[in-house]
Write a protein that binds this DNA or RNA. Structure first.
Length: 510
RNA sequence: GCGCCGCUAGCUCAACUGGUAGAGCAACUGACUCUUAAUCAGUAGGUUCGGGGUUCAAGUCCCUGGCGGCGUACCA
């Protein structure tokens, strides 16, 4: 939209600017009708005594019809199909639509004129009457009376073309009003998150909350958002992960904790990345990554059974069967298989050569292990369509993971891949404070070499670990990605009610 | 970041090698007492994203800025 739209402040619709734009004429016309309507009805009443939702009417049709029961249903007027002295108009509530039938004979001149001429598409009304089926078989309310509930001064979008993704994302209220499948998708997101909570509750995890505003960020490799606290006159960061605080709770003796919360990462946005996103993290004392793997598998299977087709999910062209035991693949084995080389035996220059051979140009600050990770992303990840655990990653990539109990240079970590993208990340958590300090120091080395995502050393976190952290397994899962998988979309904006958008402006300076 | 494509009525979109900017829906007027993308007749609605340029003439060509989509790179 342009600034034109902003010249009609919401607070004073009585005095629309004398604009030349047609938009004003549409709004002016509606305001004019509202004035007329205001002479006979309350324009903004305080509530409505509903007896049924549209969904309940369908479910209880037989009983309601037999009894000739009067029902009262509020909703939004979606279209008007007038035929002289009658009017059919579907009324839409959260659960769907119910058609209302207005008839001059029944309503009388004044009320019929009101619905026919003064109530606009988009307005909210409550209809009262009895149920019947029309000649064509549609369940309909024979309206004996109706109540005006709220005015739509601004018209809704046109009804039978799809809005584009930008409009849907920027004006989510319109998307939700016009597209019932969009509503269903977001309701499903809610149901998925509820199910995740139910799962963790059943596994006897405690849901906790940790700070969003942190004096030091950590727990992931990413650039943070920075803000300032006035009273303390200090810099604070929006968290990039919950990890370091949740581990302090483990130190404190809470043995199983989880958190579902927003993380913030100051990086590029695209089809699969939003600057703020919802993360699940969980930690369990006495567990290692094998038990976390089992937990993750149980959780995904439960979600696939509830939200998929008996444990089978369809994502684009891909069918994923979550009933079968998930594949388990070692990071190095997968790379060796795709490259034909045992990478453990290569020195650094040979790794660089191999990366170049596969089109990966080493960037500043990219160590050997980051190159391996890039190679993995390039060669292996796209092929991981069925649920697959990738295990035992190089150490440098995972400064918070415990060294592998058998293979030097690796850590006990897994990532879960489905449909080619990462769904979960987990490790046997490092709980040796001396080793943890050395890992932070190594990260500092990376930072000095130009890696601006390297993790800063967190002295307070180390202090907690020095006071004794039990053996612990941890796991993180991007909830938005999970929802994308379960609702079968490849765009994160389809699963975020209000995805980040560039602010709208009225044009450049020239 | 980079590359490609796009931005025209409230919404969805047309407009040939530069030559008077159109349609459907929405709106307005009228007809119609079982419609459902209701139908029929008529009316109105435009700073063609902003700025600059070339030209007798620019929605169209050039420059520049804004916003979006897709691809690509990094990250979940």
């Amino acid at each position: 939209m342009t600034d034109r739209e902003n010249t009609t402040p919401a607070g004073e619709p009585e005095q629309p600017a004398e604009g030349t734009a047609a938009y004003h004429h549409l709004i002016e016309g509606r305001i004019e009708k509202m004035r007329e309507l205001g002479k006979s009805v309350e324009l903004y009443p305080y509530g409505y005594a509903r007896t049924h939702t549209s969904e309940q009417l369908r479910a209880q049709e037989e009983a309601l019809t037999a009894a000739g029961a009067a029902v009262r249903v509020p909703g939004r007027l979606m279209t008007k199909r007038g035929a002289g002295k009658t009017l059919f108009a579907p009324v839409q509530d959260e659960w769907g639509r119910i058609q209302a039938y207005f008839k001059l004979d029944i309503l009388g001149e004044e009320r019929f004129h009101r619905i026919m001429k003064l109530v606009d598409i988009g307005d909210w009304i409550g209809v009262e009457g009895t149920l019947f089926r029309t000649r064509t078989g549609e369940l309909t309310i024979q309206v004996s009376d109706f109540t005006f509930l709220a005015k739509a001064v601004r018209p809704l979008p046109e009804k039978f073309h799809d809005m584009n993704l930008e409009l849907k994302s920027r004006r989510r209220h319109l998307d939700l009003a016009m597209n019932l499948e969009s509503r269903e998708r977001f309701k499903k997101r809610s149901a998925i998150i509820s199910e995740v909570r139910a799962f963790f509750d059943s596994e006897e995890f405690l849901e906790v909350e940790t700070p969003v505003l942190q004096p030091l960020y950590g727990g992931a490799t990413a650039r943070p958002f920075t803000t300032h606290h006035n009273a303390l006159d200090t810099t604070l960061y929006l968290r990039i992960a919950d990890e370091l605080y949740l581990k302090r709770l483990i130190v404190g003796g809470l043995e199983r904790v989880y958190e579902i919360a927003k993380d913030f990462r100051n990086e590029g946005m695209d089809r699969t990345h939003n600057p703020e996103f919802t993360m699940l993290e969980c930690y369990a004392a006495w567990w290692d990554y094998h038990q976390m793997m089992d937990l993750t598998e149980r959780m995904l299977r439960r979600l696939a059974q509830r939200f998929g087709d008996n444990g089978v999910l369809t994502y684009g062209e891909v069918r994923m069967d979550f009933n079968q035991p998930f594949a388990r693949l070692r990071f190095m084995d997968a790379l060796a298989e795709r490259t034909g080389v045992d990478l453990m035996k290569l020195d650094d220059t040979e790794v660089i050569a191999l990366a170049r051979k596969h089109g990966i140009e080493p960037r500043k600050g990219m160590g050997r292990d980051k190159l391996l990770d890039a190679l993995f992303g390039e060669l292996v990840e796209p092929g991981l369509t069925q649920p697959t655990f990738v295990m035992d990653h190089p150490k440098e990539l995972s400064p918070l993971a415990k060294a592998h109990r058998e293979v030097p240079g690796l850590v006990e970590r897994f990532e879960l891949f489905c449909a080619g993208f990462e769904v979960a990340n987990s490790f046997s958590e490092l709980n040796d404070p001396f080793e943890q300090r050395r890992r932070f120091e190594a990260q500092r080395g990376l930072a000095e070499a130009g890696d601006d995502e390297a993790q800063p050393l967190d002295e307070e976190f180390l202090m907690a670990m020095e006071q004794g952290m039990p053996p612990t397994g941890g796991m993180g899962m991007g909830i938005d990605r999970l929802v994308m998988l379960l609702v079968d979309t490849n765009n994160i904006r389809d699963v975020l009610l209000f995805p980040a958008m560039r602010p709208e402006r009225t044009g450049g300076e020239g």
